[in-house]
Each structure stands twice: as structure tokens, then as C-alpha cells.
């Protein structure tokens, strides 16, 4: 023990950088992603084709855009279960505008604005009235999609202009799609926002201890409101991409997507109770989910079995470190 009268020198880091990276969740997840890639390439001869792989990215790009914003929201200790319904409402609004002759720029503006408004609506109830976000967004999940059903009934909006299809069907270069580019740009923006800015640090502080964050001079309500706005905006962007890719709007669009988004976030190592998680983790999780769905699709596995697989994957990957720790403790005892 050091003499108490001496000034202590506390080192900056407990472990070396290499140890921290090696022991991280992202490292484990990356190993899983590589394993799935290898297994897939052996399982199906069609897997290792550039065009097929490019198609496969549609399995996750739209969900991942929302997942990045959702990751921040969950890290802050909140959640938004209305994202798929925001897509429906946003897409319906675009379809409606189309009936009045809106062009592509107007459609995009309307899609994004509706997303933002929905996010603001959720954020108001959570941050101003102090209601629990899980309850509020379960409510708005029904509300937003309900409005779409009232407007559309059993109908669908079709006839989007050719230029609008660029977002969901266009290619930038060779096999690289517009959505892929958007995915990369958004991933970088959110990675920087969460890990490199004061705002991101506030998100972590709020998730670990909202009272302590408030007592530290952080404007907790403002940060949370912005996070709901961002999640709404991302749902709006996803609505533009998805509507453009499908070329039509039905009120059932993106049904159940909210759970896939949350699954992706949790698989990426974000603590569902808030406080921890990274954007690189969510990026890898997006690829893992995309590869699994695509690989199983090539093997003609039906959708319902696929969802069983995704469920098992989620529970398996989450349980693995815990089982590992228990086994290690068992050996010692």
C-alpha cells in the first residue's frame, strides 16, 4: 500500500487498448458475422456473387438507418416502438401528396417532415409530460398506423414518379446502391455523434443515471427530445427508401419492423436498460442479421423459420458471454 501522505498517481487506463478491443462485444459479434459469412458461402453456391450480396443489403439498410437513432434512444434509457408506424404514416402522407401532383422533391420533404412531426409528438409526451416512452410509443404505434388505415383502407397509392424510384432502386456505381451509400453516411454521422461529441457523452450519462445527469447540469429533457426527433427523422428517411423501393404505399407497410430494429440494436450490444452500447456494434449486427436472412433465403427456408433463427441468434449471442462467465466461475470454485 502506498503511503497516504504521498500524492498518488492514478493511471489513465486500466487495460491496454488492445485488451479493451479484444474483450469487447464488437469483437465477439464480428467473429459471429465472419462465421456466418463462411458458412453461407459453403452452404450455397449463389452466395458469393456480387449482385446477390448487393441485393442482400436491402434486408437491413432501411432497418439499420432507424436502428442507429434507436440505439441512441435506448442508450439514453428510452425506446420508440412506433417507428414502423411512422413509416406507414409518412408513406401514406407521400402517397396522398402524390394524388395532388407532388413531385419527387416535395415527396421527400413531406416524408421527412411527417417523420419529424411524429418524433416530436412522441418526444412531447415523454419529455414534457414525463410519461414512460414504452407506453407512449405503444400508443402512437396504433395511432399512426391507424391513421394510415383510415386514409387508405384496403387501397394502395401507386404511380410514384420514375425519379422517386432512385432512392430505393438506384445504383451509385456497379453493385453499390443508393441505400448502401445512405447507410454508410448515416452510420458515420451517428458514430461520430455518439462517440465523439458532447451530445453523445450526455446520452451515456443520462442512460446510466438520469438524476445524476440532471444534477450535473445536463439538459436531460432537451437531449431526450432531440433523440425522439432523430428517431422520427430516420423513420421518415426509411419511409422514403422503402416506398421508393416498393413503388407503392399500403397501410400495412413495414408491419413488425419496430421489433426487428430493436433486435438489431440489442444484438449490437446496446443494453436494453440503457447506459451502454456502440454504433460499430449496431453496424456489425445489421450485417449479421442481413447475412442470416439472405443465406437462409438462398436455401429456400420459409420466412417463419427465418424469424425463429433470428430469435435464437439474438438469445444465443446475448447469453454467450454470461454462460462464458459462469463457466469460468465454475472452474475456479
Amino acid at each position: 500500500m502506498t503511503d497516504a501522505t504521498q500524492t498518488r498517481h492514478v493511471p489513465d487506463h486500466l487495460n491496454s487498448r488492445a485488451t479493451r478491443i479484444f474483450k469487447s462485444w464488437e469483437a465477439l459479434l464480428l467473429a459471429v458475422a465472419i462465421a456466418i459469412f463462411v458458412i453461407n458461402s459453403f452452404a450455397s453456391p449463389y452466395f458469393l456473387s456480387a449482385w446477390n450480396l448487393s441485393d442482400a443489403t436491402f434486408n437491413f439498410t432501411e432497418k439499420a438507418m432507424i436502428a442507429f437513432a434507436m440505439a441512441l434512444l435506448i442508450i439514453s434509457g428510452e425506446i420508440d416502438l412506433s417507428v414502423a408506424s411512422i413509416i406507414a404514416l409518412s408513406s401514406t402522407a407521400m402517397g396522398l401528396a402524390l394524388q395532388y401532383g407532388a413531385g419527387t422533391p416535395e415527396l421527400v420533404m413531406i416524408g421527412l417532415t411527417v417523420g419529424l412531426l411524429c418524433g416530436a409528438f412522441n418526444g412531447f409526451f415523454v419529455t414534457v409530460l414525463g410519461l414512460p416512452s414504452i407506453v407512449v410509443t405503444i400508443g402512437t404505434m396504433s395511432l399512426f398506423r391507424g391513421i394510415s388505415y383510415i386514409i387508405l383502407g384496403d387501397d394502395a397509392f401507386r404511380g410514384y414518379p420514375a425519379s422517386f424510384s432512385w432512392f430505393g432502386q438506384g445504383y451509385i456505381y456497379w453493385v453499390f446502391t443508393v441505400e448502401m451509400l445512405l447507410f454508410v453516411i448515416i452510420a458515420i454521422i451517428y458514430g461520430v455523434l455518439l462517440h465523439k461529441t458532447n451530445f453523445g457523452r450526455a446520452v451515456y450519462a443520462i442512460g446510466n443515471n438520469p438524476t445524476g445527469a440532471l444534477f450535473s447540469g445536463i439538459r436531460v429533457a432537451r437531449v431526450k427530445f432531440i433523440l425522439f426527433l432523430l428517431t422520427g427523422l430516420m423513420s421518415g428517411i426509411a419511409a422514403v427508401c422503402l416506398t421508393s423501393r416498393l413503388g407503392s404505399t399500403r397501410p400495412s407497410i413495414a408491419t413488425g419492423m419496430e421489433l426487428e430494429v430493436v433486435t438489431m440494436v440489442v444484438l449490437g450490444g446496446v443494453n436494453i436498460l440503457g447506459g451502454s452500447g456502440t454504433i460499430p456494434g449496431v453496424v456489425i449486427a445489421a450485417f449479421v442479421m442481413g447475412l442470416v436472412t439472405f443465406g437462409l433465403g438462398l436455401l429456400n427456408v420459409p420466412g417463419i423459420v427465418m424469424s425463429i433463427f433470428i430469435g435464437l441468434l439474438l438469445i444465443g449471442v446475448i447469453a454467450l458471454p454470461r454462460l462464458w462467465a459462469m463457466a469460468a466461475a465454475g472452474r475456479k470454485a
Binding site: 451515456y204 450519462a205 446510466n208 445524476g212 445536463i218 447506459g275
Partner: peptide, 17 residues
Amino acid sequence: KQGAIIGLPIFQNITLP
């Protein structure tokens, strides 16, 4: 509850405000 933000590293607690 109100002082330290448990879950965040020491240095991030100190620099938060």
C-alpha cells in the same frame, strides 16, 4: 443517485459539466 454517475468512468464523471 444524484452525485456520481455510476456506469461512467471516473474521468467522464469529472469532465461531464
